[in-house]
């Protein structure tokens, strides 16, 4: 259970207006509009193929990897339309992403986490050490790996690798963190560890959590949006979603597990 945010008089960290996403001529998501604020976890739920991942890809301009992917509408992050950012890399640096299947870069645990700070120009060993420790602690991985930081990141177990990628995302000091079905390859115990870590991280940044697990959204998200087959159905306070206080009957059905 989480408190809902008082949002009326706050400035949104991320503001989305009439966003539609296309692959070539095919529309995969239409007419998304909502605001997301600092220090909240915003959940996005919906069955497979609903456009959730495509939505995340737009936010940090990963559409550039897919030639035929494009979008219409307006996405304003940190006070600036994402299409008007002059430095695409600075945009990506301020948005951390955690993918469904962890991708440990082919280097040691330490180097995985120290890479982004190094790219920012941090050279001092002491400073890097403390960043690595802090990020690994916040991702609930430090205790398990502190004695073998020089081991290849890809040799960790699936759940550990996923926490490593979270630590790595934190090392870039993002203002917003995108999590795409992070628990898909992770055991329940690790999932709980990560969820606890996310609750703490909420105090420092904006988090968008895409998940297949309706109950996970309930545990973590302040507000939730429901996507269905490329359509944005509605968004609202998470508690309202689970107490049946919704506008669209499809949302109620999905949340109650009647389809999906």
């Amino acid at each position: 259970m989480v408190e809902s945010n008082e949002k009326s008089d706050k400035t949104p960290k991320l503001s989305i207006k009439d966003l539609s996403i296309f692959y070539g001529k095919e529309k995969v998501l239409s007419n998304v509009s909502f605001d997301i604020f600092e220090n909240e976890i915003f959940g996005i739920i919906g069955p497979a193929n609903s456009g959730k991942t495509s939505f995340l890809r737009i936010l940090n301009r990963m559409d550039t990897f897919v030639p035929e992917m494009r979008f219409e509408g307006e996405v304003v992050f940190d006070g600036k339309n994402i299409m008007e950012w002059r430095n695409l890399y600075a945009l990506r640096r301020s948005i951390g992403v955690v993918f469904p299947l962890p991708v440990g870069l082919p280097m040691s645990i330490y180097e995985n986490v120290a890479l982004s700070p190094r790219l920012r120009g941090i050279r001092s060993k002491g400073e890097l050490d403390s960043i690595v420790e802090r990020c690994l602690r916040r991702a609930a991985l430090w205790d398990e790996v502190k004695d073998r930081l020089n081991v290849l990141g890809s040799l960790l177990s699936g759940g550990q690798q996923q926490r490593l990628t979270i630590a790595r995302a934190l090392s870039q000091e993002p203002k917003m963190l995108l999590l795409d079905e992070f628990s898909i390859a992770v055991d329940p115990v690790t999932t709980m560890k990560i969820e606890d870590a996310l609750k703490d991280l909420r105090n420092e940044m904006t988090i968008i959590l895409v998940t297949n697990l309706v109950q996970q959204a309930r545990r973590l998200a302040n507000r939730t949006a429901f996507f269905l087959m490329g359509e944005f159905i509605e968004e609202g306070n998470t508690e309202d979603f689970f107490t049946g206080n919704v506008q669209d009957p499809r949302t109620r059905q999905y949340v109650q597990g009647r389809f999906g």
């Binding site: 940190d78 006070g79 600036k80 950012w85 600075a90 945009l91 640096r93």
Partner: peptide
């Protein structure tokens, strides 16, 4: 609106 400081 927020003042953007990252886009340098």
């Amino acid at each position: 609106p927020l003042k953007n400081t990252s886009d340098t």
